[in-house]
Amino acid sequence: MFIIDYIKEVYSAVKSLLKGMKLTGYYFTHHKEIITQQYPEVKQTLPERFRGEVVMLHDENNEHACTGCTACELACPNATIKIITKFDVSPEGKKKKALDTFVYHLELCTMCNLCIEACPTDAIKMAQTFEHSVFDRSLLTKKLNKPGSKIREGVE
């Protein structure tokens, strides 16, 4: 009968609404467990493959593995990387191409990881830092090779 269906419908609607309110009411009264992360105080350990920014690896002798081959610069889809090369003169008088400055525009980077994959010597990698905000845009243009650093012996 129509009227019985109608009443049943109203009853089940009210019942399901109250069920929902019971759940949110439970959350409201039991707010000890907070699912959000209290960010500045508590920092999550990021996954290993998190891509925060491109960094160049330096060992304890301030040596890196970058040969200045510009493979990363060519791989970059939006011109984030600019490699400036120079010529080192070896004791035998042989000229050799080497890295002068690794310019990295963090403001243009999309963290696509293509430069890291292109690098033949694994000189660069993605770091887990993510707090990149600065007051001046020019601070986002970085030089990745440390001052005075040179290429590690044996890396070709």
Partner: peptide, 10 residues
């Protein structure tokens, strides 16, 4: 605040 507590936030 009510919204936050109901969604288990602060």
């Amino acid at each position: 605040r009510v919204a936050a507590f109901m969604q288990i936030r602060l």
